[in-house]
Design a protein around this nucleic acid. Structure first.
Length: 720
DNA sequence: CGACGTCCCCTTTTT
DNA sequence: GGGGACGTCG
């Protein structure tokens, strides 16, 4: 394509962004405003006009999917080979850089990547070794602590710790890093931090990359954390420019360290002259867009932006007030059927929810109604237990000192190595300050301690290493699944059919991986064996969420998972106080603002039809909970709405469940679940009673006012 | 040593 | 309601 063709069809703002001069810029790109298009066209334009070569720029995204999408679009515009280009995720690029300079980074050439569950088990193992009370220090929290420290760019020695508790945490962090180094593994955050430290420490390497990447383009900038920002800043140096695309209103990852504040910092740190706002939306009808704008306008901390569209008003936003969660699900089923008969494809409809726990009842109802659906966000291919087992064998063949891998499979399939033998092994390793594998092999030599099973395991791994010599990657995968006994184990398991199929799929994946022209992961600087590459690929790119793609099916996912997608019709369910906004969020700083952005993301997924539903009661954690409609619903102007059941027929509160059946509700003034009004707290729902008749207290969920316990005598409640 | 039962806790998620 | 962790029994 020539330059004109590349730029054709862009609106003025998009064009302005794409053709900005060589200086750092911030593009505020609203939902559906053509963000990805601008980013890719910018790259194409820079290359086409000869301002930069494909090798002289770096493009960073958060997900592999986004990276792939970008490259696909790029190749459709320019006849260039994208292989070898530095385009990928933060983690992928850091990994690549670390592989190229593993010595300078202080890593073994075959270093493995620890994924989240692996990291957790590594931490648990360490804490046991250190004799840390896991009641006082829940491993999950320790993991969170370590990761957030790393994401702030802080090593253990640099972390503040004032009291005994935080000092202990810091100590665990320090020991954990030592353990990782000993085992030659790096967790996700470590890839970034290690890379950052390398660039900071080694002027030679830093200058090499600084003089190479004159243009750095960053997608979803609002999701960057502190460390990622520092990393970008380091690479940019004093003369390179960063083209940052993002939307502060769609920042929904604060809980994992994303700092929207990076956008403001970027503005001043990089002396940004141009903030281009892309506000024309090409996705939704205006009723939907106006609803989204109205909601988000309630947030205080915004850079400011208002989406508009030249599409018509379209349908009103529909609100359904369900009696309970089953009713809500049934309503959706009915509506989906109607929409389908009106010609909307099932695959073009999405069912969004705030938390995964909500999906069960929806799935159940859809299943009963024979509506095909697909749930996103379950276990992914490389995260499945059987696959991780097989990979662990492969990892051991590559590097037997990988304790995490060893522990995963030393007794799986069971070979008679119990807790006692394991304890002895770990003790031996601790004493000799060596890996478990080394301890195990030493033990085989001197015949100490009852290690019959361990001997067998050592023999097995050695045999595998023997047979692995000189074979191809698929053959190695095959070896890891058969010789290990995994396949036999699952063959004898009555529910092992799927697992066997997955193991076979792993071999297929290995074939596909070795056939690809290994471009994506390597370049001249790297000379990695394909096994390491494959294992990397498995950790960094865990694979598609679900297998049966292509089948026409209703799309189910959390609101988080829906970011970046769009559908003709969208159902957002569970729009209740406590659920959306989530209860937990109201305790956090600016938590509700993030929830509101989440709602904004959800609403802007819809092109033509939008449904918001809430239920008066639902099962949550095995208990019936009562909720009132979300405050976000009140934030949408009535003119945009159509209430499908303006006053829901008050159904008998005892149907379906047996709750309250035993308590003598007779003596209570209001039924559980009754909506009431209080002079000060406003509208609420009766949750329960406490105390006895003479001294009765009533517990009411007032939504945004929270849960209140009031003395019946003084409460002055009014039925609604 | 391993299978089975019981208790506890519970957002959101990518790499 | 359901998964993970732990404890007991065979």
């Amino acid at each position: 394509m020539d330059t004109d063709t590349i730029l054709s069809g862009l609106n003025n703002k998009q064009l302005e962004a794409v053709t900005l001069p060589q200086q750092s810029a911030l593009i505020l790109a609203g939902a559906g405003s053509g963000k990805t298009r601008v980013l890719t066209t910018r790259i194409a334009w820079l290359i086409q006009t000869g301002q930069v070569s494909p090798m002289g720029l770096m493009a960073v995204t958060f997900t592999n999917k986004a990276a792939k999408e970008m490259l696909t679009r790029l190749t459709s515009m320019l006849p260039i080979n994208t292989r070898g280009m530095w385009a990928g995720t933060f983690h992928g690029l850091c990994n690549r850089l670390l592989r190229a300079h593993y010595r300078e980074a202080g890593l073994p050439s075959t270093f493995q990547i620890l994924d989240t569950p692996d990291q957790l088990s590594s931490i648990k193992r360490l804490m046991k070794l250190m004799n840390v009370d896991d009641e006082k220090y829940p491993p999950k929290q320790v993991q969170g602590y370590i990761n957030s420290c790393k994401e702030e760019g802080l090593r253990a020695h640099a972390v503040d710790a004032y009291d005994a508790h935080s000092q202990k945490l810091r100590e665990i962090y320090e020991e954990y890093d030592k353990q990782c180094n000993r085992e030659g593994v790096a967790d996700f955050a470590e890839l970034l931090l290690r890379c950052y430290e390398l660039l900071e420490r080694d002027a030679h390497i830093r200058q090499h990359y600084q003089s190479r990447f004159h243009y750095i383009l960053v997608d979803e900038f609002q999701d960057t954390n502190r460390l990622q920002y520092l990393w970008l800043k380091l690479l940019a140096g004093t003369s390179n420019c960063i083209f940052a695309v993002g939307d502060d209103d769609q920042s929904i990852y604060g809980f994992r360290g994303a700092r929207v504040g990076n956008m403001r910092d970027f503005e001043s740190d990089f002396n940004v002259q141009n903030i281009v706002k892309l506000e024309e939306n090409y996705r939704s009808h205006s009723n939907i867009l106006d609803a989204a704008n109205a909601i988000i306008s309630h947030n205080k901390h915004r850079l400011g932006k208002n989406l508009w569209t030249s599409a018509g008003k379209g349908e009103p936003v529909r609100i359904y007030d369900a009696y309970n969660d089953t009713d809500e699900a049934q309503f959706i089923v009915d509506e989906v059927n109607t929409l389908q008969s009106e010609g909307i494809a099932l695959g073009d409809m999405a069912l969004l929810y705030r938390s995964n726990a909500q999906s069960r009842i929806l799935e159940h109802t859809l299943f009963s109604a024979n509506i095909p659906y697909r749930v996103y966000g379950g276990l992914r291919f490389f995260e499945r237990a059987e696959i991780k087992h097989a990979l662990a064998y492969m990892r051991l063949i590559a590097n037997a000192n990988d304790d995490t891998a060893l522990l995963r499979v030393i007794n799986f399939p069971a070979r008679g190595i119990g807790a006692r033998s394991l304890e002895q092994l770990q003790e031996a390793a601790r004493q000799q300050n060596c890996s478990l594998w080394q301890a195990a092999t030493n033990k085989v030599g001197n015949g100490t301690l009852g290690g019959k099973g361990i001997d067998g395991f050592v023999g097995l791994i050695r045999e595998m290493v023997n047979q692995a010599y000189g074979i191809s990657l698929p053959e190695l995968a095959e070896l890891a699944t058969t010789l290990s006994g995994l396949k036999t184990f699952y063959e004898n398991d009555k529910e092992g059919e799927d697992r066997i199929a997955n193991l076979e799929e792993l071999v297929t994946a290995a074939v596909a991986f070795s056939n690809q022209d290994f471009g994506n992961h390597n370049n001249v600087e790297e000379d990695l064996d394909i096994v390491t590459q494959f294992l990397n690929h498995a950790s960094l790119e865990a694979g598609e969420h679900q297998a049966d793609v292509g089948r026409e099916a209703l799309q189910l996912m959390t609101v988080h998972a829906s970011k970046g997608l769009e559908f003709n019709a969208v159902f957002i369910c569970g729009v209740e106080e406590g659920l959306f906004p989530h209860e937990q969020s109201t305790y956090e700083n600016n938590g509700v603002e993030e929830e509101r952005r989440l709602m904004y993301v959800a609403v802007t997924r819809a092109r033509q039809r939008l449904y918001l539903s809430h239920a008066q009661s639902r099962m949550l954690h095995g208990q019936v909970r009562y909720g009132i409609p979300s405050r976000f619903l009140d934030e949408i102007p009535d003119a945009l709405l159509k209430r499908l059941n303006s006053k829901p027929a008050p159904k008998p509160y005892a149907t379906g469940g047996n709750y309250q059946a035993t308590s003598s509700s007779q003596q209570y003034p209001f039924k559980i679940g009754q909506s009431v009004r209080h002079a000060k707290f406003g509208e609420g729902v009766v949750v329960s009673y406490e105390g006895n008749a003479s001294d009765l207290a009533i517990k009411i969920n007032f939504g945004r006012e929270g849960l209140k316990t009031l003395m019946m005598e003084y409460a002055k409640l009014e039925k609604i």
